[in-house]
């Protein structure tokens, strides 16, 4: 007798079902971000093997304000606190990304980031973006366009915050 709620698939279903590997999980998370908007899954999956997966213990510094940045970071597990001059700006969790300015610029990091819990982070680095530009220009162009959109929306948010702040507090 078939159990209620349990969907029975034919035996060949598993042959064609995509296995859930770490790489496909990372690709899924990236594809849900604004940075990988309109980028095909297969293209994203070709980029993932180049990305750097790193583990951070609770309280470990990811980068400090003024450090040389080299890429954008996405949280695979755990949470990350972003702060500036001791003030917490954001608490990011699984699937969020930060530090995207370093993808386009050699400028130092503009805030501090540290692991709020034991965390796994995925780094997508500028050298890999440049390799992508050399090897797959249309995909890299879409990524750059997305990046510009993300940076523009962050700039708009900062401007709104500044406009809302009373002059006396500036």
């Amino acid at each position: 007798m078939q159990e209620v709620g349990l969907v029975q698939h034919p035996f060949w279903h598993n042959l064609f079902r995509r296995s859930v590997t770490l790489e496909s999980t990372i690709a899924d998370l990236w594809l849900n971000t604004a940075l990988f908007d309109r980028i095909a899954r297969r293209h994203c999956e070709t980029m993932v093997p180049n990305m750097q997966l790193r583990q951070y213990g609770k309280g470990e510094v990811i980068f400090n304000q003024g450090d040389l940045g080299i890429g954008v970071v996405m949280i695979l597990s755990g949470s990350v606190s972003i702060s500036s001059n001791g003030n917490q700006l954001a608490l990011l969790s699984k699937g969020d990304f930060f530090g995207e300015v370093a993808l386009v610029s050699d400028e130092p990091r503009t805030a501090d980031a540290f692991a709020d819990q034991d965390s796994e982070l995925v780094f997508f680095l500028r050298p890999h973006l440049i390799e992508l530009l050399e090897q797959h220009p249309p995909i890299a162009s879409q990524l750059m366009l997305n990046l510009a959109r993300v940076l523009a929306s962050r700039l708009r948010a900062s401007n709104d915050m500044l406009n809302r702040t009373p002059d006396s507090e500036l």
Partner: peptide, 25 residues
């Protein structure tokens, strides 16, 4: 080469990871 490079860079401690990539690049 890209695979070797990525594996080698993975051995760099977290604190110097971005610096190592920056200099390498």
């Amino acid at each position: 080469y890209p695979k070797f490079r990525n594996r080698l860079m993975n051995t760099v401690p977290n604190k110097y990871f971005e610096l190592a990539w920056h200099i390498y690049f």
